[in-house]
């Protein structure tokens, strides 16, 4: 009995001492939840998708507890910086511009092409027409530079809508996002062009959070090394997807 109490007390002391560390181990993962198959809210209301699976595995390997949070794309970087969550794992391409504000881990998804998608059977002027893209994406930046008229939308879904209702001639977005939509459109939509823009996709982390960046880099490295990452890429993006 006595030893049991002693043990409990000792346990409490240890747990109190460790609680600082335990708290440090909970990481809040910020994602958009509207960009399948990278990330989306499934029918049960949970964050799901390629990044959910990769993220959970990374957390496991890094010895972290992860909580998933969704945030609008528009404010996803400001809210990371002000500490509402600790990572951005939302199909975010690594760009020099973003790198000025936050840090990126190494890529967990290789550079993939972007598609132009338009209504089938229409000739679209990709350099001079009206092109829809999600605001604050590399695609939006690309369209703005290209000479075409850019119309921006807050969510990826709205960009597709814009093409369907004729507001835009075509949409420019990640091929992995657009491919399933085109495939399931019963021939209404088609890919009318593609571009290589941007590098791979990495996890965004606060610049002051070097520790976390190191841990995640290491975990991503190990997933690349043992092939688990490639397996997940194939599961979510198909056998033809680019792998490491």
């Amino acid at each position: 009995m006595k030893s049991l109490i002693k043990g409990t007390v000792a346990g409490m002391i240890v747990s109190v001492a460790l609680s600082g560390m335990a708290m440090a181990q909970t990481i809040r993962m910020g994602t958009e939840g509207a960009y399948p198959p990278y990330n989306f809210i499934n029918d049960a209301g949970q964050v799901d998708g390629f990044e959910r699976e990769v993220g959970d595995e990374l957390c496991k390997r890094a010895g972290l507890t992860c909580e998933w949070v969704t945030n609008e794309w528009d404010s996803i970087i400001p809210n990371l910086v002000s500490g509402n969550y600790d990572t951005i794992i939302a199909g975010m391409s690594i760009t020099a511009e973003r790198d000025k504000v936050i840090d990126f881990t190494q890529d967990y998804y290789p550079a993939s092409p972007s598609f132009f998608v338009a209504m089938s059977g229409q000739s679209v002027d990709l350099k001079g027409g009206v092109i829809a893209a999600q605001a604050a994406t590399i695609q939006a930046g690309f369209v703005a530079e290209s000479g075409a008229t850019l119309v921006e939308f807050a969510t990826p879904d709205e960009t597709i809508q814009a093409v369907r209702n004729g507001e835009a001639d075509a949409v420019l977005a990640d091929s992995d996002f657009l491919a399933p939509i085109v495939a399931e459109s019963n021939g209404e939509l088609e890919v009318v062009g593609q571009e290589r823009i941007g590098g791979g996709i990495g996890m965004g982390i606060r610049e002051s959070d070097g520790d976390l960046k190191a841990k995640m880099d290491k975990a991503i490295g190990s997933m690349k090394a043992d092939g688990t990452l490639n397996t997940m890429i194939k599961k979510w993006f198909g056998d033809d997807a680019a792998t490491f």
């Binding site: 708290m23 507890t65 500490g83 600790d86």
Partner: peptide
């Protein structure tokens, strides 16, 4: 304030990182 970042110590986070999602 470090550059762009707003960093308080773990214990000062509101709610704590480890708190369940409903508290957030």
């Amino acid at each position: 304030r470090r550059g762009n970042d707003f960093v308080v110590c773990t214990a000062a986070k509101l709610p704590l990182n480890a708190d369940p999602q409903w508290m957030h």
